[in-house]
């Protein structure tokens, strides 16, 4: 399936800012089942976008806007071809657990086994693990499919309940969250309780009417490395496997590794962020047209995801004190 994606991000600052440096992860990845034919970035204020590929193969663009401005707009447009991933078997052999452990002992995917910033266990997570009985049994694929469904069942999707960077405990307490929460919770359970290597995927979903997650925003899911199958994508928000409708943009240990935008600037006292994402299949690419499969494309403006970024306000004196403390923290190896 060939898609065109338009991802618009707008930061409106309460006060003018300058010397802004921004890093973005918005270019769809190239992989065995996905190819990004075209990527175009439009920036306002104008800036020279440079890029590099990080150690996980994500393409990161970065740019600087030294001048005074009060609004930053990033429009990332891409055309990306996604093919269906190989069909999975109904289950794996029970020996897959042992095969996984052997690879782990050899050091494969070490990072993806470890608790990371958003996937460190908490008392509430342990309670959930007991409730859902997340333990090794049968074979890894069977357990993962059941877990994918169980998380979908247990948590309500609520775009207003948490922020993209909320700790998992917020979602665990209220049993509601956004796709990042579903993903982080399943990542934590898979790593800590099933001891399988798992990674976070940030990307887009070409939505259908029956999907749980909200259209118009970026999406997140996870991939688990399974013996003989490689990385297999699970989307607990929608209780589906990642397939032809999932467009991979970046992979990491969790959200902290791959936020779509990350920036530092001088001045200002907070900002308002608005994001919209539009994913459209391009004609002539042979998309299925069943009722359930019909893409959500009624010509209306895509919904907009809004949040207020945390205010960075602090007094000059506070800032000075914090700087002095940090100066003292520097180890000089005396």
């Amino acid at each position: 399936m060939l898609y065109s994606v338009r991802h618009t991000t707008r930061f409106q600052y309460k006060l003018p800012v300058s010397e802004a440096i921004t890093e973005i992860r918005m270019r769809p990845r190239d992989s065995e089942i996905q190819h990004c034919n075209l990527f175009r970035l439009t920036l306002r204020p104008q800036a020279n976008a440079l890029s590099f590929t990080d150690s996980l193969g994500n393409v990161v663009h970065h740019f600087s806007q030294p001048g005074v401005h009060q609004e930053l707009q990033i429009v990332a447009e891409s055309e990306v071809m996604v093919s269906a991933p190989p069909v999975l078997p109904a289950s794996l052999d029970a020996t897959a657990w042992a095969q996984n452990d052997e690879a782990a002992a050899a050091g494969d995917h070490w990072d993806m086994f470890q608790p990371s910033a958003y996937t460190t266990s908490t008392a509430r997570l342990e309670a959930l693990a007991r409730e859902l009985d997340v333990t090794r049994r049968d074979d890894p694929l069977t357990v993962l499919l059941a877990l994918n469904a169980a998380i979908h069942r247990t948590f309500a999707y609520d775009a207003t309940s948490t922020q993209v960077d909320s700790p998992i405990d917020d979602a665990l307490l209220h049993r509601r969250g956004v796709c990042q929460d579903f993903t982080h919770i399943m990542l934590a359970l898979v790593r800590n309780h099933l001891r399988l290597p798992a990674r976070y995927v940030s990307g887009y979903l070409h939505h259908r009417r029956d999907d749980t997650s909200a259209d118009g925003a970026s999406h997140a899911w996870l991939e688990v490395f399974l013996p003989g199958l490689g990385w297999v994508g699970f989307d607990p928000t929608n209780n589906i496997l990642a397939g032809e409708r999932h467009i991979q943009v970046a992979i990491g240990r969790d959200y902290a590794d791959v936020p779509p935008t990350r920036g530092v600037y001088k001045g200002g006292s907070g900002s308002e962020l608005s994001v919209s994402v539009r994913v459209r299949p391009l004609h002539g690419s042979g998309g299925a047209a069943g009722t359930a499969d019909a893409p959500l494309d009624d010509g209306s403006e895509p919904p907009v995801y809004r949040s207020t970024a945390q205010a960075l306000q602090s007094s000059y004196a506070q800032a000075q004190q914090a700087a002095a403390q940090q100066q003292q923290q520097q180890q000089q190896q005396q």
């Binding site: 890093e23 530092v264 800032a319 914090a322 940090q326 100066q327």
Partner: peptide, 16 residues
């Protein structure tokens, strides 16, 4: 931008 977000001693973008 790359390491500690709260660093007030570094240079944003230096790592790039």
């Amino acid at each position: 931008l790359v390491f500690r977000k709260d660093s007030m001693l570094g240079v944003p973008g230096l790592f790039s």
